[in-house]
Amino acid sequence: MGGLSLPHLLLAAVVVLILFGGKGKISELMGDVAKGIKSFKKGLSDEEPAPKPADPAAPAKTLDHQAPAPAEAARDPNKVG
């Protein structure tokens, strides 16, 4: 008990072959995943330029918004409940 037998090893080999070997769609997909991981790591290692400080003489930006409608006006008068 607890050891890997021949059927277990064959099953593992078949799974690895399906995922990484041959010319199937799954192997192409795994290759694309590997390329994506490599480009992600490359993107993390690239240094980004430092952001420029804001101009202190420029006026502050504000957001214009409307007050929410009262709860009673938003209710449907035909709906019971």
Rank of each mutant, 00 (worst) to 15 (best):
S5M: 12
A58N: 02
I37D: 03
A12E: 09
D46Y: 03
L11R: 10
A34V: 12
V80R: 09
G22K: 07
T62V: 08
A13M: 08
E28T: 06
P51W: 04
V80W: 07
D76H: 08
L6F: 14
D76R: 01
K25H: 04
N78F: 14
A57T: 06
G43E: 01
A58I: 00
K35D: 07
A73Q: 08
V80Q: 13
Q66W: 13
S39C: 05
G31I: 06
L9A: 14
R75Y: 00
L19A: 15
L19G: 15
G31N: 14
H65I: 02
K42V: 00
R75N: 02
V15R: 11
S5D: 15
G43Q: 04
P56A: 08
D64R: 09
R75Q: 08
D55P: 04
E28H: 12
L17C: 12
K52I: 07
D64C: 07
A34L: 11
G2D: 11
A74K: 11
K38E: 12
L6P: 15
I37G: 07
K79L: 11
V15L: 10
I37N: 07
A74G: 10
S27Y: 03
K41W: 05
P51Y: 00
K41S: 01
P68M: 09
A60V: 02
A34H: 13
G43D: 05
S27H: 03
K38M: 06
D55E: 03
Q66C: 12
A54N: 07
P53E: 02
D64A: 06
K35P: 04
V80I: 14
A69M: 06
P56W: 01
L4Q: 15
K38P: 03
A71W: 10
N78T: 12
A12H: 10
S45V: 04
L11P: 07
S39N: 02
H8T: 11
A74N: 07
M30K: 11
L63Y: 04
K52C: 06
S5P: 08
D76C: 00
M1N: 11
K41V: 04
G22Q: 09
V33I: 15
P56S: 10
P53R: 01
A69Q: 07
P77Y: 05
A12R: 15
P70M: 03
A54S: 01
L9V: 13
E72W: 04
E72K: 06
L44Q: 03
K41P: 02
G22A: 05
A73R: 06
D32L: 11
F40L: 13
P49Y: 03
A57N: 02
F20H: 14
N78G: 08
A73D: 13
P68I: 02
K61Y: 01
I26C: 06
P49F: 05
K25E: 02
G31F: 14
G36N: 13
K41M: 05
M30I: 09
S5R: 15
R75F: 00
K79I: 11
G43K: 05
E47Y: 10
S27E: 03
L63E: 02
D76W: 09
G81S: 11
K79F: 13
A60W: 01
L17G: 11
I18P: 03
F20M: 12
P56E: 00
Q66Y: 10
P68T: 00
L29M: 06
F40N: 00
G81K: 11
P7M: 10
G3Q: 14
G31L: 14
G3A: 15
A57E: 00
L9P: 11
P53S: 01
G24K: 09
V14D: 04
A50F: 00
N78A: 14
A13I: 13
G36H: 07
E48Q: 10
